[in-house]
Design a protein around this nucleic acid. Structure first.
Lengths: 189, 189
DNA sequence: AAACCTACTTACCTATATATAAGTAACTAT
DNA sequence: ATAGTTACTTATATATAGGTAAGTAGGTTT
C-alpha cells in the first residue's frame, strides 16, 4: 500500500465519519490529495469497495484491540475501557461520529457489500461488549439490570447516539455521558 | 394546506427519517405523488425550506405533547413515558430513525436554516427531559446518578442511537433498551 | 533496448440533484 | 366577462456523482 492509497483511506474515513455515506464523494478526496477523481477508481473501482474496505479494516483493528486486552488478562472493566479509549481517540482524530453510525442511517439503501460489512462490524463490537459484561458481572466488577445481551445493545446504541449528539454539544458531553454509562453499570473505579 | 402539500410533508418526513438529509430527493417525493419535481418547488422553493418546516412542525408537536402532560399534572414518569410512546408510534409509522437523528449526521454541512431548526428541536427535547427528570427526582419517582442535565443528554443520545440500531436489530431491541433506560433511572412501574 | 508495470491523467459518459422561468388549465371573485 | 389565483407542467440550466476507457510518463525487468 503506497502513500496515495493510505491517504485515500485516511480522508475517506474522515469524510465518511463527518458526513455519512452520501455526504462525501471521490471528488472531495481527490481534491485533498491533489489528484484526479479517476486515480481513486484505480484503487477502489467503486465507492462500495472503498467503504467496505474501511469497515473491514476497522473491524480487524477493533478485534485486535479487544483480543489483546482479553489475552493479557484484562477484566470486564479493562475490556470496556479499551473501547471507550478508542472512542475518545477516534473523536480526537476529528472523526465526528462513529464509523458504523456514519453508515447505519442509509442501511437498507446501500450496496450489499457495505451492508454486510457494517453488520459484521456492529455484531463484532456488540459481541465484545457482551463478553466484557459477562466477565465483569461474574467477577463482581459490575452490577447492572437486564441481561448481558440487552445491556450490550444498550451500550452500543448509547455510544452511537452520544457520538452524534457530541457533534452539537461538544467533547464534554461525550465525557460526561460515558461516565454515566459506567455509573449505570455499577462500575466503581 | 391542501392534500398535495400534506402528502409532500408526509413523504418528505418518511424519506428523511429513513435515509437522512442527503438520502432523498424532490424526485422521490414527486414520484410517490405522481406529480412533477417542480410542483414541490412551488410549495417549498428549496430543500432547506422543506426540511426546516418538518423540523419546526415536529418541535411544535412535541412541545404541545409535553405541555399537555405537564399541565394535566403528570409527574416525571408520565412526562417521559409520553415521549417513549411517541418514539414507538414514530417507529411504527415506518420512520426508521428519529427526525433529529436523520439530520444530525450532516450537521455542519447543512444550510443554516436547517442547522438552526435542528438545534432548536434537540434543545427543546432535552429541555423537556431535564424538567421531567427534575420533577421525578424531587418526587421520588426516580433514583439515578449524575445531574439532571447530564442524564437528559444521556437519554437523548441513547434514544438517538437505539433508533438507529433498531434499523438493524428490529423493534424488539428498541423495546428492551427503553426498558433498560427506565431501569437505570430507578423507575419502578 | 524492448517489454512491462505502476501510478496516475485526460477525456468522456450517463444519471441525478437542485433548482428556475415560463406557460397553462381550471377555478374563483368581482 | 375579466382579472386574478391556484396548482400545477414543460422546458431548461447548472453542478455534481459515479464510473469507464484509453493514454502516458517514468521506473523496473529481462
Amino acid at each position: 500500500m503506497n502513500q496515495t492509497q493510505e491517504q485515500i483511506l485516511h480522508y475517506a474515513r474522515l469524510f465518511l465519519q463527518s458526513r455519512g455515506y452520501n455526504g462525501f464523494s471521490y471528488r472531495d478526496i481527490a481534491r485533498k490529495l491533489d489528484i484526479k477523481n479517476a486515480a481513486i477508481h484505480n484503487y477502489y473501482p467503486k465507492k462500495e469497495d472503498l467503504v467496505a474496505t474501511l469497515l473491514e479494516e476497522s473491524r480487524k483493528e477493533i478485534n485486535a484491540n479487544f483480543s489483546r486486552v482479553v489475552e493479557s488478562g484484562g477484566g470486564g472493566k479493562e475490556q470496556l475501557q479499551s473501547y471507550f479509549d478508542y472512542t475518545f481517540q477516534d473523536y480526537d482524530n476529528g472523526r465526528r461520529i462513529c464509523l458504523p453510525g456514519s453508515v447505519i442511517v442509509y442501511h437498507g439503501e446501500l450496496p450489499d457489500k457495505v451492508q454486510e460489512q457494517n453488520l459484521l462490524l456492529i455484531d463484532n463490537i456488540i459481541g465484545w461488549f457482551s463478553r466484557a459484561l459477562k466477565t465483569g458481572r461474574e467477577q463482581g466488577e459490575f452490577n447492572f439490570s437486564g441481561s448481558v445481551d440487552e445491556r450490550a445493545d444498550l451500550i452500543a446504541g448509547t455510544l452511537l447516539g452520544i457520538r452524534q449528539l457530541s457533534t452539537l454539544k461538544g467533547r464534554d458531553t461525550l465525557v460526561k455521558t460515558i461516565t454515566l454509562i459506567k455509573a449505570d453499570l455499577g462500575w466503581i473505579d
